[in-house]
Simulated scan of single mutants.
Amino acid sequence: MDLKNQTAVVTGGSRGLGLGLVEALVDRGARVTVVARTAGDLESVSRRLGVATIAADVTDRAQARRIVSEVRPTILALNAGAPPEMGPLDELSWEAFSNTWENDVKAGLYWIQAALTTPLPRASRVLVGSSGASVGGSPMSGGYACAKRMLWFMANYANKLSSERGLGIRFQTVVPRQMIGGTGTGEAAASAYGAKLGIGVEQYLERFGAPMPPRRFGEHVVTLLTDPRYEDGLAFGVKGDTGISILEGAPA
């Protein structure tokens, strides 16, 4: 995929990993629309990068359908999510345990549905953000790991529907394989797990090897979009020291 003049929508693109991806897409000449809740963050990213912005609740089904229908992106990056509430399993309320389901999974469902039913243009790419917790678990973050795995499943379900209906839309899951400092989720998780071990956030993050700041994450995702080796895969891990790995190949 040549990114120049491609139309991209990035949910949660005003901060953290989403912002790193927005910066990388803009540098490649893509026309980017950022969707997020906070008007101040949107104003800042618009002023600095010249992107279009839409203030919206990503868990609002009608908003997802409206934005996808009006913008008709050829790249849809579903990055928005809520940091999990951290704590031992026996201390979490249901509300805390299910927070990621009510935000990340709910938003993922509505935006994937919008991509399929609008539908997006042929050869569009939908990137669904997951987490390394979907592979190894995360015992201090309630339902977070299962929610992130559900997003991965949903991307695969959507691929089957796209194929059955001849839509030509590809859904791919992006799985950061480390906690990332400077992001809400990364800081919350590293703080909780570090405290359990009696070490600080930075010391805990060092356990993952080379850091992967948001902009480097964005560059990895741009590579997924532009390198033909990754065109047909279903799920990809990204990490600071090893780069991109294929976690699930193209469907048989």
Rank of each mutant, 00 (worst) to 15 (best):
residue 8 A to E: 09
residue 11 T to F: 10
residue 14 S to W: 05
residue 15 R to I: 07
residue 16 G to Q: 07
residue 22 V to L: 11
residue 28 R to Y: 00
residue 35 V to W: 01
residue 36 A to T: 05
residue 37 R to G: 02
residue 41 D to H: 12
residue 45 V to R: 08
residue 45 V to E: 01
residue 46 S to H: 13
residue 50 G to N: 06
residue 53 T to C: 08
residue 59 T to I: 07
residue 62 A to M: 04
residue 63 Q to S: 15
residue 67 I to R: 06
residue 72 R to L: 15
residue 72 R to V: 09
residue 72 R to H: 07
residue 79 N to W: 05
residue 82 A to M: 12
residue 90 D to N: 12
residue 99 N to C: 00
residue 100 T to D: 14
residue 103 N to M: 05
residue 103 N to E: 02
residue 105 V to S: 02
residue 107 A to P: 00
residue 108 G to N: 01
residue 111 W to Q: 00
residue 113 Q to C: 05
residue 115 A to E: 01
residue 116 L to F: 03
residue 117 T to Q: 15
residue 117 T to V: 14
residue 118 T to V: 14
residue 123 A to S: 14
residue 125 R to H: 12
residue 126 V to N: 01
residue 130 S to D: 03
residue 132 G to V: 08
residue 137 G to S: 10
residue 142 G to S: 11
residue 149 R to I: 00
residue 149 R to Y: 13
residue 155 A to R: 05
residue 157 Y to F: 12
residue 160 K to E: 13
residue 165 R to A: 13
residue 169 I to N: 03
residue 170 R to Q: 07
residue 171 F to Q: 05
residue 172 Q to E: 08
residue 173 T to D: 04
residue 174 V to A: 02
residue 186 G to H: 05
residue 187 E to M: 11
residue 188 A to K: 14
residue 196 K to F: 00
residue 197 L to D: 11
residue 197 L to Y: 01
residue 198 G to N: 11
residue 199 I to R: 09
residue 202 E to P: 00
residue 205 L to V: 07
residue 209 G to A: 10
residue 210 A to N: 07
residue 214 P to F: 07
residue 217 F to V: 03
residue 217 F to N: 01
residue 222 V to S: 08
residue 223 T to A: 13
residue 224 L to S: 04
residue 225 L to K: 06
residue 227 D to R: 09
residue 228 P to W: 04
residue 228 P to G: 04
residue 229 R to P: 01
residue 229 R to V: 12
residue 230 Y to K: 08
residue 230 Y to A: 10
residue 231 E to I: 02
residue 239 K to M: 07
residue 249 G to R: 12
residue 249 G to T: 12
residue 252 A to M: 09
residue 252 A to T: 13
residue 252 A to R: 14
